Amino acid sequence: MTSLPAATPPSFTPLKWPDLTKRPQPKPDATISYGEDALQKADVWLPIGLGQHPVVLMVHGGCWTTSIADRSLMNWIADDLRKSGIAVWNIEYRGVDRPGGGYPGTFRDAAAAADALLKHATEFRLDTKRIVAVGHSAGGHLALWLAARPRIARGSPLYTANPLKIARAISLGGLPDLEAAAASPDNGCGTDVVAQLVGKPGSRIDVYGDTSVTRLLPLGVRQDLVNGREDKIIPLRLGTGYEAQARAKGDRVALHIVDRTGHVELIAPESAAWAQAKHIIQTALAGR
């Protein structure tokens, strides 16, 4: 019997941003304002039916910089969740390149946008018993930070008395550790943007204390990191490093590494990475 040579695995070409953004873009069912600025908005995606709808709090990335990306980058996966019976609360916030962005404004925006979900829950028939936060790239950091808000000390400019309770936080190719990102010139956002986001430590106060998720560990919230093995924008070690720190502090955290996956695939609804993230979301909303 003649043995055939092993087949050569097909080469992998990661998606580029236009591969996603040039597609026809689905639209949300409603948009609410949580402040007076034009960027202080949240889009609402509602499944067919009367509810109560399970709900995902969604946070876009773009290096915390409005000119790079806005919430519409998440429209394709928001629509996919809507079609699967899950409501989405997709938030906008002022980036570091906009008046009022940076510290504390970007964080206050994310917090106010999240808390606005509770204010509008009855109007949109949202089930708030178990809310899952999902963020991509820089939004992965903000999703985890929103889950960490109960850990922020009273007296901090970012303290909120009764923040929205997050049942589970999912980071898609995120930057969960700001200090590691600031020390990693190969992260796709660069190191300067972290300084713009948090303010330079020592200039006023060490604002890493209330902005860096690692400083706020343990969160007491189950966390999942979904990362592409071939992600050239956000190095995989930023995920593995955070996982180790969170586990060491006693949190339940899982790192899911998806082969043949870059950065864009993480929010492309047909991808294996999104299928895995969606399964995690559905499991979390079911309380499992």
Rank of each mutant, 00 (worst) to 15 (best):
W45M: 01
G51A: 02
E36A: 15
D43S: 07
C63E: 04
V59D: 06
A42G: 12
S33Q: 06
T31P: 10
K22Y: 06
G49E: 03
S33K: 10
K22M: 12
D37M: 03
G35K: 06
S33R: 07
Y34P: 01
G62W: 04
Q52C: 07
T31R: 12
G61K: 10
E36G: 14
V44F: 07
E36C: 13
H53Q: 10
E36T: 15
Y34V: 00
V44W: 08
E36K: 12
Q52E: 12
K22P: 04
K27L: 09
V56D: 00
K41C: 05
D37Q: 06
I48H: 14
D37C: 03
P28V: 06
R23T: 00
H53G: 14
I32T: 14
Q52I: 14
T21C: 10
G62D: 09
V56L: 02
C63H: 09
T31I: 12
D43K: 05
M58Q: 10
P47G: 03
Q40G: 07
M58D: 09
K22N: 11
S33N: 11
L50G: 15
L57V: 03
G61E: 13
K41I: 08
G35S: 04
L57F: 02
G62P: 11
W45V: 01
T21W: 09
W45Q: 02
C63M: 09
L57K: 01
G61F: 10
A38Y: 12
T31Y: 08
G62Q: 13
V59P: 04
I48E: 15
T21A: 15
H60F: 13
A38Q: 13
K22R: 06
R23M: 00
I32H: 08
A42V: 15
D43H: 07
P24I: 02
R23A: 00
